[in-house]
């Protein structure tokens, strides 16, 4: 979150998507931190809903660890309340009316009024609605909540089945993103040689999710194939400097030339880049 916020004024087009640990953090804080990132980046914020129930994290937050069976319900409540808080100020709530001395139109602020299983939040938020209204919510497949982007963990042979399952569950409007480890050939050494050397230090657990090891051209072909199955990939580069440079130099230009991929343009929001519409405010709909 800190690196994402720091990056906001340093960039102008790229989306900024932190994993925000969301089980033991206060949901109100998650809502305001992501909204602040969205404001600072002029609408380029996403939120990967972190749901690791690790008792060590609970201890750090002074919270009681959640049983694995309770994680799903808790995350569903957190996403719901964060979304309500993001809508608790209507887009035009700040009126700055000098004549009457009013900064806010109180009729355009709304309580979140959320009662969950383990917590309740009254609201409203302490921040105006951010540029995207609702920042882009990313979550792992299986999350029972209102999600914009579903992150799929499946190996390449099962990618199509995983995508169909997720599409059936979440509907056509959701974006499906496959998580993909990447190790490319680089500087005269094959991806496999580079991976073997790294694994000799400490192994990279890879079972159950997609991994590509090989040439940049081969990765380009794989992404073209995947573009028929999913809406995107989240690449985990084995070594950032080498693999990011190789993908940027030899893979993305090929995808752009084939018309498979477009890079984000300066000033676009992340929702626009992903083809998601500006969301209506849930409270404005009720009151007007």
């Amino acid at each position: 979150m800190i690196r994402a916020s720091f990056s906001a004024p340093l960039t102008g087009a790229i989306g900024l998507v932190p994993v925000v640990h969301s089980l033991y953090n206060e949901p109100f804080h998650v809502a305001t931190q992501v909204a602040s990132l969205d404001t600072a980046s002029l609408g380029r914020a996403g939120w990967i809903v972190g749901a690791d129930p690790d008792p060590a994290i609970a201890a750090r937050h002074g919270r009681t660890p959640l049983a694995a069976g309770d994680v799903g319900d808790e995350i569903a409540d957190v996403v719901e309340v964060v979304r309500r808080l993001w809508d608790s100020w209507e887009d035009d709530a700040v009126i700055r009316d000098v004549a009457t001395g009013r900064y806010l139109d109180r009729d355009r602020l709304h309580y979140a009024d959320f009662e969950g299983k383990r917590f309740s939040v009254k609201g409203p938020s302490i921040l105006p609605r951010s540029p995207q209204g609702q920042s882009v919510v990313f979550a792992a497949e299986g999350t029972a909540a209102e999600v914009d982007v579903v992150l799929l963990d499946a190996d390449l042979a099962e990618g199509r089945d995983a995508a169909e399952t997720a599409r059936a569950r979440y509907g056509d409007d959701v974006r499906l993103v496959l998580q993909l480890d990447v190790v490319l050939d680089r500087a005269g050494r094959t991806g496999q040689q580079r991976l073997d050397e790294l694994d000799a230090h400490s192994p990279w657990p890879g079972s159950g999710h997609a991994r590509y090891v090989g040439t940049a051209a081969g990765l380009g072909e794989l992404l073209v194939e995947l573009s028929r199955v999913v809406d995107g990939v989240r690449i985990r580069p084995a070594v950032l400097d080498s693999d990011l440079d190789e993908i940027g130099r030899a893979v993305l230009p090929v995808l752009r030339a084939l018309g498979v991929f477009r890079s984000p343009v300066a000033g676009a929001t992340l929702r626009e880049t992903l083809g998601l519409s500006h969301p209506a405010n849930r409270f404005a709909k009720v009151t007007r």
Binding site: R3, G15, V17, P18, I48, G248
Partner: peptide, 10 residues
């Protein structure tokens, strides 16, 4: 390089 977004996984 033109990536859609960066992910920060802390």
């Amino acid at each position: 390089a033109g990536f859609t977004a960066v992910v920060f996984d802390d």
